[in-house]
Design a protein around this nucleic acid. Structure first.
Ligand SMILES: [Zn+2]
Length: 727
DNA sequence: CGTGCCGGGCT
DNA sequence: AGCCCGGCACG
């Protein structure tokens, strides 16, 4: 335009021309600037993808969509979106850039794999869970993996450039996420570490930059995570439905669990710093915070990383938006308390499990934020969570650790256990999620558990007995709340007898982990309700459950030789809730149960006086997966005493009880039992009889035949419970 | 009776 | 630990 006009006219025209030129120039300049921001990212992205990404290309996953919308708002949307069809991903500048460090491959995984095959996605993400049915070894898996690796490599290489570009988006979150995911998936510590370093530096520098942008990226990241999470869940479901999916046996079989749980590592310093930063920035990151908040709350409970992810995801979906406003405020407030808590937790976790530092960081951050948010929310709402702001004592720390461990364990375990004993649920609902419940905790928990597979990977640190003592101390004081139960009473396990009790009956009860509430209900729904109404202060929302409740209760399995007693006592338990009295509610239990958030197996009362709890976890064989972890029941929230032992296979599980008190479970009726106060009771001891239903599914032996014994999973080869085909 | 796998034993 | 296997429970 400019030039042309110039040529045509010469006199005044000039002036006009100049004016127009100036205007144009300005516009162009502005446009250019705008593009720069976005383009940088894209370009990088493009490089990335061009190199090899078929996978990336595909993806239009949820998160992407999400990110898009966000991006558009914040940055310049039109061009980016239109320009690159292929780069749809790239579009989200912030996203990619953010993710770039690590996420690329993740995205791929998530979107591609998931979309393409739920089952696959699941397997990949969850590797851990048992050995997957490898029956049909898939090439796909390998392909994916290779692709992933390639991506990762690229990602690393790209870092440099990314940094520059990224700035806007980059932030702690990003880094964290990236790291986190990367770690999960890759396990490549070394790589992760390097990435972290770069990312961190970037993020810090950038932090100062624009907040608005930051938000976007964060969202993205989160969304990404969520997406992945979802996928996992879904995949998990599918997996459940069909145990024999396609995974390659080899890969999974004995792969270390990819992402068992969060592990804390070193770098406390980093965490703290990050936290601080977050606080400062808090406002900028709303969604994330929110999600984290949910976490936090759970954290008190026994939730794990994975759980968090799940929870986050949920929260993000709904509440996050609403809360954003609040969040900003909250973030500022982010009280030291939370900080402390968070730190503590982190430490605990670390101690418990040291695997991937990167992940830990992320986790921490999330936790912190989430906590703050959560707390804030809660306050607003009504009730406070027990989480004690001040938890300083070392003891407390221990507790946390223990709790964390428990949670992890339980999570990981539960799925496996799925135990038959529980009986029922599965049959009732074919699809977990389908049921309304699913979304809430149940699904997540279940899902996680599956994944959690921490079986192998989590080397959770076993905190054995020590935990018990420490716990006791804590609990004792708090113990009797009187009102509620205390119920828990402890448990003992039976050490003695029962040679094999597989066949006894198991009962499943749900216990409230709220600090002073020991309520035990027969149905999951009941507890959820209880928690929601009483502890969370959400009476009104009865139906709506965001899944948070899940974190506050655990599934307890009672098996007794003389179950009747224990059960009887228990069953009546829930007064408040409407839960149906029958505890064996198969219906109520639903999948969740089966998935089991946490399964605690027996509880026996040690002595009422001392509500100590002991857990012993007993793991049979390494191959089985869950590492033996002893977790103190409710460290955080809990209560007084609950201790449970978790075992992963419920039936056969053997616990060693700690015979602290003379009384054991065995004697069924001895006086101890009766303590129940008004509300619940604790089951005195329950002994369970377990029965082992024997899964009907075919196991390796049958599937592959005796001739191909080498194809069996190790467990089968050893004549142990099959890891590959879980019932 | 075949299968699944616990509980042990050996290495 | 890893590897095996006797033997029991289950269907
Ligand atoms: Zn097997």
């Amino acid at each position: 335009m400019g030039p042309e006009g110039g040529f045509l006219g010469s006199g005044q025209v000039h002036v006009i021309l100049w004016g127009s030129l100036a205007a144009m120039t300005t516009l162009l300049f502005l446009t250019f600037l705008i593009f720069l921001c976005s383009s940088c990212n894209r370009e990088k992205k493009a490089k990335h993808q061009n190199g090899d990404h078929e996978n990336l290309m595909n993806v239009p996953s949820d998160k992407e969509v999400f990110s898009h919308s966000i991006t558009s708002l914040a940055t310049e949307p039109p061009p980016s979106s239109d320009q690159n069809g292929a780069l749809s991903n790239g579009e989200v500048v912030s996203e990619d850039s953010t993710t770039a460090c690590i996420q690329p491959y993740e995205e791929v995984q998530t979107s591609d794999l998931l979309d393409q095959q739920d089952s696959l996605g699941k397997s990949i993400k969850c590797h851990q869970s048992r050995e997957l049915p490898s029956i049909p070894p898939n090439n796909t898996m390998e392909t994916i993996i290779s692709a992933r690796n390639a991506e990762n490599d690229q990602g690393l290489g790209m870092e440099g450039p990314y940094e520059v570009l990224k700035d806007s988006s980059s932030q702690e979150n990003i880094v964290e996420d990236c790291l986190y995911e990367t770690v999960k998936e890759i396990k490549d510590v070394g790589a992760a570490a390097s990435m972290e370093g770069s990312c961190n530096s970037k993020s810090k520098a950038l932090l100062t930059t624009s907040e608005g942008q930051n938000q976007i990226p964060e969202c993205r990241i989160e969304s990404a995570e969520y997406a992945s999470v979802d996928r996992n869940k879904k995949s998990r479901q599918s997996a459940n439905s069909e145990s024999p999916l396609e995974n390659t046996p080899d890969v999974e079989d004995e792969l270390p669990p990819p992402v068992p749980m969060k592990l804390l590592d070193e770098n406390e310093n980093v965490q703290e710093k990050e936290v601080e930063e977050e606080v400062t920035e808090g406002a900028s990151k709303p969604e994330k915070r929110l999600s984290s908040m949910s976490y936090k709350s759970r954290e008190e409970d026994p939730s794990l990383t994975e759980d968090e992810a799940a929870s986050i995801k949920r929260e993000m979906t709904f509440p996050a938006f609403q809360q954003e406003d609040v969040k900003s405020d909250i973030s500022q407030k982010l009280p030291d308390q939370q900080f402390l808590l968070f730190t503590t937790k982190e430490e605990d976790l670390k101690t418990a499990e040291t695997k991937k530092p990167n992940r830990a960081h992320e986790y921490e951050k999330e936790n912190t934020r989430s906590v703050c948010l959560l707390e804030q929310k809660r306050k607003v709402v009504s009730s406070n969570i027990d989480v004690p702001p001040a938890r300083k004592s070392s003891e407390e720390l221990d507790m946390d650790k223990v709790t964390a461990a428990m949670v992890l364990t339980s999570l990981s375990t539960s799925p496996l256990v799925r135990s038959p004993p529980v009986r029922p649920n599965e049959s009732l609902n074919g699809s977990w999620k389908e049921g309304g419940f699913v979304p809430s905790s149940t699904s997540s928990s279940g899902y996680w558990s599956w994944n959690a597979p921490s079986d192998q990977s989590n080397p959770s640190t076993p905190s054995p007995p020590l935990s018990a003592d420490s716990f006791k101390a804590f609990r004792t004081p708090s113990q009797p709340d009187d009102g509620i139960d205390e119920a828990e009473t402890s448990n003992l396990l039976f050490d003695e007898p029962i040679p094999r009790k597989r066949k006894n009956s198991m009962k499943v009860m749900f216990k409230c982990l709220w600090k002073n509430c020991g309520k035990v209900l027969s149905t999951a729904a009941g507890i959820q309700k209880h928690i929601r109404n009483i502890h969370l202060g959400r009476a009104g929302e009865s139906d709506y459950s965001d899944g948070e409740e899940d974190f506050y209760y655990t599934e307890i399995r009672l098996n007794t030789d003389s179950v009747a007693d224990g059960l009887s006592s228990l069953s009546p338990v829930s007064p408040s809730l409407a839960s149906p009295p029958s505890f064996p509610t198969q219906d109520t239990i639903r999948p969740e149960t089966s998935c089991a958030k946490t399964e605690t197996k027996l509880m026996t009362p040690l002595s009422r006086s001392a509500p100590t709890n002991l857990y012993l976890v007993h793991t049979d064989h390494a191959y089985q997966a869950t590492p033996p972890v002893n977790i103190p029941g409710s460290t955080k929230f809990t209560p007084n005493g609950s201790s449970f032992s978790i075992s992963w296979q419920s039936p056969p599980v053997t616990f060693t009880g700690i015979p602290v008190s003379p009384t054991h479970n065995r004697p069924a009726g001895s006086g101890e039992q009766k303590q129940s106060h008004t509300v619940l009771s604790s089951p005195p001891r329950v002994a369970f009889g377990l029965r082992k239903p024997r899964g009907e599914g075919k196991k390796c032996r049958k599937v592959y035949g005796m001739e191909n014994r080498d194809m069996w999973c190790t467990a089968c080869r050893w004549k142990k419970a099959c890891q590959r085909f879980i019932d």
